[in-house]
């Protein structure tokens, strides 16, 4: 039983119900649905009918290109900011710490 100030969760109950339901779904899906009999080029990936050519390697960071394109304004500011120079990072850290401490001081 996991409990916080206003939230609660019983992982054991969750896992046991999950396992029971997935077991039942697995049995029912194997009983009611049929499998394929291998023939010909049936199992090749569907590439609109083309044959599979050589494998292309793309970097994994291209997976979220949509996200980066949507937040282009933010990325154009923040990427040049990371100069790699430790003095710049420490300067930014001290400025943000000063702002946070003044805000906390004002509010309390």
């Amino acid at each position: 039983m996991l409990e916080s100030y206003s939230g609660y969760w019983y992982p054991l109950v969750f896992v046991s119900v999950f396992l029971i339901l997935s077991f039942i779904v697995y049995i029912l899906s194997r009983v009611f649905f049929s499998s394929a009999h291998k023939k010909g080029e049936q199992a090749k990936p569907f590439l609109s009918g083309n044959k599979e050519t050589e494998k292309v390697h793309i970097p994994a960071s291209s997976i979220y290109w949509g996200f980066i394109k949507a937040l282009r304004g933010y990325y154009d500011v923040i990427i040049p900011f990371h100069t790699g120079n430790i003095n710049d990072y420490m300067g930014a850290f001290i400025i943000v710490l000063a702002i946070v401490l003044t805000v906390v001081e004002v509010l309390t």
Binding site: S34, A36, P45
Partner: peptide, 23 residues
């Protein structure tokens, strides 16, 4: 869909491919 056959493509990661719909 119960009457159609289930084709499993040959270059899939078999255990993820089969268990993802159940999960």
């Amino acid at each position: 869909l119960m009457l159609k056959e289930t084709i499993v493509p040959e270059n899939c990661v078999r255990w993820v491919y089969e268990s993802a719909p159940i999960i």
